[in-house]
Structures are given as C-alpha cells and as structure tokens.
Design a binder for these strands. Structure first.
Length: 884
RNA sequence: GGGUGAUUAGCUCAGCUGGUUAGAGCGUCACAUUGACAUUGUGAAGGUCACUGGUUCGAGUCCAGUAUCACCCACCA
C-alpha cells in the first residue's frame, strides 16, 4: 500500500464551504456560462425550475432543507445530463407573516406598535429586517449545496416583481376580473386585517346550539350558535318543499325589538340550501356575518335586505355596533351573546339549548377566531366569464382545464382530485390586506375618479389605495416574473417558460400552486410548469410535526455543521416519495453520514491501491464482467428513476450497489486481480451517479483523485448506458458460467474474502486466479454449474473439484458442511421443489387456467416449470456429490 | 358531513399491471477484525401481510364491508 495523505474520515467541514465557493465562482450554476464553456450544448432541451421562495420571516427549517435537497438533486442530474438547466432562487416578502413578526419584535424590544411610526419609517424597519433575513436564507441555501443561479436571484417585493404585479393587476382590472366590492370577508380582529378562505385554519370546539323564536308570535323557531348575530337577521330561510313552513314563504314579520335590541323585519324565503332535518329546519339569515348567509342573500337580493337598514351589527373592532341597539352597542361578541341568551330566556322565547360540536375558522397568522363582517375590499372574480380565443371562460375553468387537459401533471396523482374539488368550492379571492408591508394596490382615487395603472396617474390630488395585496398574488406570478415578464421578449422568458417542474410541499397546493396556474393561464395562456411534484412534511422520528413547543425541531444548519450537508440531504431523500411525509431522526442522519464516509474510504482505497494508468479500461475477468454489467444496469435504472422523480428509489439502488457489490465485493476482488484501470473507471462512474445526491463528498473525491477530465464533477457528463465496456473476446462460455455463479452469490449476499489464512471453504478458479468464498449458501450456485457436468473428486485434499470448461471450482466439503444437515436441507428443498413442480404441472393441465390465463402468463408458467425442473436436477446431482 | 391516505419483522418502510418459499435498512444476538473504512465485516433470530367475506386455478397485491390511525375539505345554521 502506498503512503497517502488522505485523512481516514471524511470531514465535511473542511470541504463544503470551499467547494461551494469554487462552484459559485465558476459561474456554472448559470446555464449561459455552461454554454459558453462548451459544457452544455445550445441545442439541448431546457430544464427549468423556480425555487419556492422561502418567507423572509427568518431561518430555514428542515422542510426547506428537504425541498432544497430534492430540487438540487434533480437539477444537478439534468445539468450533468447536458440539459440547459436553470434553477432560480429567491425569497418571498410574505406580507402579513413578516409584518406581524416585525411588529412582535418591535413590541418586545421597544414597546412600540406600528402606529408609533410613519408608514414610511415602519416600512424601512421591515425592509431592514427582510434584508437581514434574505442574507441568512441565502447562506442556508448555500450550506446545503444548492446549485441555484444566484445571478438571477429574485425577491417578490423587488422592483422587477413589483412591475409584474402592477401589470398583472391592471390587466385583470381592465378585464373586470378584479373588482372592489362591499361583501363579507374573513376579518381577524387581532390582526386588523382580512384573510382569504385558504388562510383559515378550522378548529373544532364545543358550542351551544340555542333554539328560539324572534318573538312570541313569530311562527317559526330557529336554531343558532351565534345568537348575537341574530340582532342583524333579515330573513329566515326554509326548504322550498318543507310542508310545515311552506305557507309562510314570502311573508314579512316585524319584530319591534328583538332581545331588547333593535327592531327586525324578517322575510321568509325558500332556499334549497336549507336542510329540513337539521335543527328546526329553518335558518335565520344574517347576510352581513356569514358567508353562507351572504350567498343566500345574493340569491334573494330582490326579496331581502343586506342589513336592517343600518350597518352590520359587528364592527371591525370585534364589538357590537350601534345597529345592534343601545343595549348591546360596544359589547364584545361574547358578552353580547350571553346577554341575548339571557334576554330571550327571560322573555320565554328560548325553547332549547344543546351542546354541539362546531368548527370555526381561525386566522392561521394571528390565531384568533375570525369574524365574518362586510367590508369594502378588492376581489378576484373567479366565476366571471371573459372572452378567450373566441369562447367564454372563467378563471375557475382555466384553472381546471390546465390540469384536466394534462398540460400540468400533479404528482402524486391523487392530489389532482383534491385540486378539482377545491376549485369547485372556490369563492372570489379577497386580495386586499390592511397591512403596510407588501405591494400597494395600484389604484388611485381623486374625488369620484378612480384610476388603475402600472404607474401613478399624472396630475394633482391623486391618492393611492392604502391597502396592500395578498402575498400570494405576487407569488402567483413567480414562474414568469422571475424570467423577465412582463417583457414578453425577454430571453429567459422565451427560453425557460413554461418551467419544467415545480417542486413544493402539498400544504401549499391551494395557496400557491393553484394561484400560479390561475395567473399563468390567464396572463400568458400557458401552464406555469409541466409537472408539480408535491413533497410531504418532514416529521420527527415519532412522526410528529416539528414544532417549537415539542422541542423536536432539527435545525438544518446544526446538522450540516456536525454531520455534513450530504448526510442530511440523503437522509431527507431516502424514503421520500411524493405526497408522503418523511421521518427524520438523528439515527438516520448518522447512518447516512457513515455512508458518506464509506464513499470517502473507497476513494482512499482507490488512491492507495491503484495507480492511474493510460491503459484503456478493459474487462479482464469474470468479476470485471459482472461489475460492469451490474453497473450498467444500475446506471440505466438510476437514470430511469430520476426521470420519474423517484429519488428515493434511485438512491436506494445506488447505495445497495455501492456498498454490497462494489465496496464489499469488487474491491476485494481487485485486491488480487488488480485491474486498476477498470476499478478507477467503475469508481468514477459511481461518483458521477452519486453526485446529484451527495455533491460535496463526491466533488471532494473528484478533486483529490481526478478520475475524469471535467473541471468539476458537477459538470462531468452523466454516465449513459451506452458507455458500457466491450466484453473481453473469447471468454464467453466459462465466463457466462462464472457470472452466473457470482450473480447467485450476490443474491444470497455472501461476501468473499481472499485471505487464505482464514477458514475459506470454497475456491473458484478462473484461469490463473482463484477466488475463495466461504458461504455454504454458495453451494446452490455451485450446484448450478454441476448441472453442466464435469465433476471431479480429488485435488486438493478434502475438496471436490468441479470443472466447467476452463473454469474450476474447489469445494472444501469437510470444512463447510455438516453433511447430515446439508443433506437434510437439500432433501427438504428438493421435496419442496418437486411439490412446486407438481403445482405448476397441475396448473398447466388445468383447463380453466389454460382457457382464461393470458398467454404471457401461461408462457411464464412454462418457463417456471423448466427452471424448477432444472433446479430439481441440480439438487439431485448435488445430493449425489455429497453422498460420494 | 364529504374525501384522501395508511395498516407487511421490535422500529422505519419496499413489494410494479395478481404468479414459486413476502424483502431491505435500523435495532437485537453470535462471530470476526494489524488490512481503504469499527463511521467495519460475516452470519443468525425475527412476519396469521389489521380483520371478515368475495372474485380467481392462485390474493400482501383486485372487489366489498369492518376496525384503528393520520391528513384534507365543508354553507348543519
């Protein structure tokens, strides 16, 4: 063994940052540079992907790490394959999330609220915070080895993206798809802002369902869990076919004062949405404080009023308004509820109270139960039709068609159904937010004039709308706002859109993926991406969500620091299939860290035990043949898996080959055969196959060994199956035999040490080389050869010589086998095999089977029968061998 | 209320359109080890494929139902 100065263990820390810097400085993350450098051909297909922009609220978590690992692996594969590969990084300003985070900090550190600042100053604080976060995030993305093109980095709130947002807004406004309307919205009292339906988190809670009448002479009792809203009721809805109440339809009842509060005028209407079997079969309608009631109101606009004349009964401060009457005005919702119940109970109007389970929507950002109140807000109308290529379509339809036509494929497929279901139930999207951080709505007012434009109108006295846009409005444009749109002639836009793949978590399918499809289909008449790969959540070893309160958060930076980015990446990838959650544990990371070290030590072996040679790699032995054949199979298989985004399977196969076939077996063979050129070639191929998964350790090895000419392994060509070496001429017959043996040996997972001092038991001799093997399971393999005859029985002592062509196999019987035991085992196996043969024969002579089974099945049966019969013959002859 | 997924070894999971005796990793136990690597190697033990029916020559795999768990959606007020 040569002296080598490679440390025994792979130390990620000494390599990772330096390697990343080199990659970055080379500019090869940028496809344009790759083309200039002659690494990528301009005629190659493109592979483009945008990084789902992390929120600038703070540090990345392990879920981001999983996302980066998956995307980087795919991206690196395509880059090596020679595709014009573009991966655009960026960050999301995450409007509400970031603003509330900064508000928290300001309160904690300076005891100030945003109202202690001017809008301008407050936004400056936010910008500073975001800048800091972005730099942190950038650092973390790099730490994981992500090969993103930093020269194209984007931010959802920078000037280019702002232009895209204003342009998109104006187009939708001009088409009448964005409207300003007074209607019910979800209102977070705590956050003093709206939130969209998707931002609601539904929680279960107990509630009291109270059944009562508005007044003594009101003919119908109604049930509710929100008695305080009943102060604003304008109608009672019943089912059109409900015989009990049919006669009241269209009647109007005046209640002088409900529960000591305001006067109500209640119209009885018929609506099919009412379930006659629930409660009393009648629903009190409060159009101002319930989305469903609002929908009822829209259907019966002619018959009923929105409120009882005044304003809604609950205000933006979460308290009852003057319209709720003197008795209730100013009370909190909870207090008002108690008081209403109190009042109707004393009046004898309360008929029943029962406990029910109820789900209520809470703001996922502010955690308070949202109030439904009517407000003047901006909406995107998803149902309004507009003309598109000569037909009338709605945004909803565009979103549906993008997927149903197959232009967009969702992985896993089951989410397609979820997606359609969501579209069915989609309501207009409320896009205005009453916060300061974000894209201010590009609409200006002057007296009664209203102006929507990409830029502010000229002239004096215009005042811009103070609201900002829902953050998902700008992220919806992400696949093309990052590529130069609205300049339709931008080179990137023309080259890379639609993007090839969108990889993101299934939890934002609706928030983001659906919005991107909406925006892209509407603005560009194109799908934003061809395939959506939805990954799962990263959970802890027990399958729990990672959260601060459980204290089970794994910080990706900690892991890269201690075990290296490669170990973390591969731990996150293994077991990750689309749509399924991944469990991550310290043990898993350790196991993968061990694997990176295994690879590292293979490189030490290659460096120390082989020499670089100019010789062309050649297949010189059967072992060579086997390893090359297997490798070419693995190459093909890994490539196929990567094409289908089955990263976990690809990594698993590679790992199995690397550890069992290459490290545990072929390296041992090499110790006697010394086919250095081939060893190096195989290892080189292996490193390339591994590179997308474990970029750092493979690049580090490449830098040490330089097994190929590429400046970086990162841009070394992806191994293709065609690169298979030619077979050694004139070695066919015995060669095939030994290959068979070796394959069988491999299948029983036995290992061969070539150390004669150890109690080796079987020697396989091929030409002048002898391979010693020590597993009794190999006997089966030997038996296979035995079937080809030529059994000798002398040399050396206590051994049987089996010969097939030029191939000789020694079997050291006495060492190996307890004859009795082995005979029993063989007999048992023979018996089972015979039974199995009977079974197949029975099947083949079974009329029903032969009639109904498809031809390929009967053929398979036939060949199975032959195999089994052969096996039986082998077993029999092997038994004869032992008996002699 | 509707939907989706899961249930296979002690643990985590593979198992493709049904086809021999259901596989792997981790863990456990035994053994080995001056050797590229103890971050190692060889081997062993370990399973009524959740349950009940059905289809089939044949079911872990397909169908129906049941149970348990998880998640998503939702206009029972």
């Amino acid at each position: 063994m040569k002296e080598i100065d490679i440390p025994k263990n792979y130390d990620a820390k000494t390599w990772e940052d330096a390697l990343y810097q080199k990659w970055k400085e080379s500019g090869l993350f940028d496809p344009d540079t790759c083309i200039q450098a002659g690494i990528t051909d301009e005629s190659r297909p493109t592979f483009s992907i945008v990084l789902p922009p992390p929120n600038v609220t703070g540090r990345l978590h392990v879920g981001h790490a999983a996302m980066l690992a998956i995307e980087d692996t795919i991206v690196r594969y395509h880059r090596m394959k020679g595709d014009r590969t573009l991966w655009i990084p960026g960050t999301d300003h995450a409007a509400v999330a970031t603003q509330s985070k900064v508000e928290d900090i300001l309160w904690k550190e300076e005891k100030k609220t945003r109202y202690d600042f001017s809008r301008e100053d407050f936004l400056a604080r936010l910008a500073a915070f975001a800048k800091e976060s972005r730099s942190d995030i950038r650092h973390q993305i790099e730490k994981l080895g992500s090969s993103v093109d930093w020269s194209r980095e984007a931010y959802t709130l920078d000037s280019e993206r702002s232009l895209a947002v204003r342009t998109a807004f104006k187009r939708m406004y001009d088409d009448g798809l964005i409207y300003r309307g007074y209607r019910t919205v979800n209102w977070s009292v705590k956050g003093q802002s709206t939130c969209s339906d998707d931002e609601l988190e539904h929680i279960d809670r107990k509630a009291t369902l109270s059944t009562f009448r508005y007044s003594k002479d009101f003919p119908i009792a109604i049930a509710t869990t929100r008695p305080e809203t009943k102060l604003g009721d304008t109608a009672v809805a019943i089912h059109p076919d409900d015989e009990r109440y049919k006669k009241y339809i269209g009647k109007v009842f005046d209640i002088p004062s409900f529960a000591g509060g305001p006067a109500l005028s209640i119209t009885i209407i018929a609506d099919a949405m009412v379930d006659p079997a629930f409660g009393t079969g009648a629903v009190g309608i409060t159009p101002a404080h319930s989305h469903t009631d609002y929908d009822v109101y829209l259907r019966h606009k002619e018959e009923i009023r929105f409120t009882q004349g005044g304003e809604a009964v609950i205000g933006q401060d979460g308290r009852m308004t003057d319209s709720a009457g003197k008795k209730y005005a100013g009370l909190s919702v909870a207090d008002a509820r108690a008081k209403v119940i109190d009042s109707i109970r004393t009046e004898g109007l309360l008929e029943k109270e029962e406990a029910v389970d109820q789900t209520v929507g809470t703001s996922d950002r502010f955690k308070d139960v949202v109030e439904v109140i009517p407000m003047q807000q901006w909406f995107i109308d998803v149902n309004k039709t507009f003309s598109r290529n000569g037909r009338e379509v709605s945004l909803k339809e565009l979103m549906r068609e993008s997927v149903s036509s197959g232009r967009v494929t969702i992985l896993p497929e089951r989410f397609t159904r979820t997606y359609f279901h969501w579209i069915e139930n989609l309501r207009d999207w409320c896009i205005s937010r009453q916060i300061w951080f974000g894209h201010q709505i590009p609409v200006w007012y002057r007296n009664d004039e209203i102006f929507c434009g990409v830029d502010a109108p000229s002239g004096e006295g215009w005042r811009q709308d103070e609201d900002t846009l829902d953050t998902w409005f700008s992220s919806g444009l992400w696949t093309f706002s990052t590529l130069g749109w609205p300049d339709r002639e931008a080179k990137d836009f023309k080259t890379y859109h639609p993007t090839t793949l969108l990889e993101t978590g299934y939890d934002i399918l609706f928030f983001w993926v659906a919005r991107m499809i909406l925006m892209s289909e509407y603005l560009l008449e194109a799908n934003p991406f061809d395939t959506v790969y939805l990954h799962g959540l990263v959970r802890d070893a027990e399958g729990r969500k990672m959260s601060k309160s459980l204290g089970n958060i794994i910080d990706p930076l900690d892991v890269t620091e201690t075990h290296g980015a490669d170990a973390l990446r591969i731990a996150l990838l293994s077991g990750a299939t689309p749509g399924n959650d991944v469990k991550l544990s310290e043990e898993k990371i350790l196991a993968m860290r061990n694997f990176t070290n295994k690879l590292w030590n293979l490189s030490r072996y290659v460096a120390a035990m082989s020499s670089p040679s100019s010789e062309k790699p050649q297949v010189k032995s059967d072992a060579d043949r086997y390893i090359i054949d297997t490798l070419s199979f693995i190459q093909a298989s890994v490539t196929a898996h990567l094409e289908k985004y089955e990263l976990s399977l690809a990594a698993e196969e590679l790992r199995e080959f690397t550890w069992s076939d290459f490290a545990d077996w072929y390296v041992e063979v090499h110790k006697i055969e010394k086919n250095d050129a081939l060893l190096r070639q195989v290892f080189d191929t292996l490193l390339r196959l591994w590179h997308p998964f474990m970029p750092f350790v493979t690049e580090a090895i490449h830098e040490t060994l330089h097994l190929n000419q590429s400046p970086f392994l990162m841009v070394a060509p992806w191994p293709h199956r065609e690169e298979k070496l030619p077979a050694k001429p004139g070695a066919e017959a015995p060669f095939e035999l030994l290959k068979d043996v070796i394959i069988k040996i491999r299948n029983v997972r036995s290992i061969y040490r070539i150390d004669p001092t150890r109690n080796m038991r079987i020697g396989v001799r091929a030409g002048s080389e002898t391979i010693l093997v020590n597993n009794k399971a190999v006997l089966e393999a030997i038996a296979h050869i035995d079937a080809i005859e030529n059994i000798g029985s002398d040399t050396p002592e206590n051994a049987v010589l089996i010969q097939a062509g030029t191939l000789q196999i020694f079997l050291y019987l006495d060492d190996v086998i307890d004859k009795e035991q082995e005979l029993a085992r063989l007999n048992k196996e023979l018996e089972e095999t015979l039974k199995y043969i009977e079974g197949i024969k029975a099947r083949l002579s079974n009329r029903a089977f032969m009639d109904r089974a498809p031809e390929h099945v009967t053929q398979a049966e036939q060949s199975k029968l032959e195999t089994a019969q052969e096996k039986a013959r082998e077993l029999e002859s092997w038994i004869r061998v032992i008996l002699t």
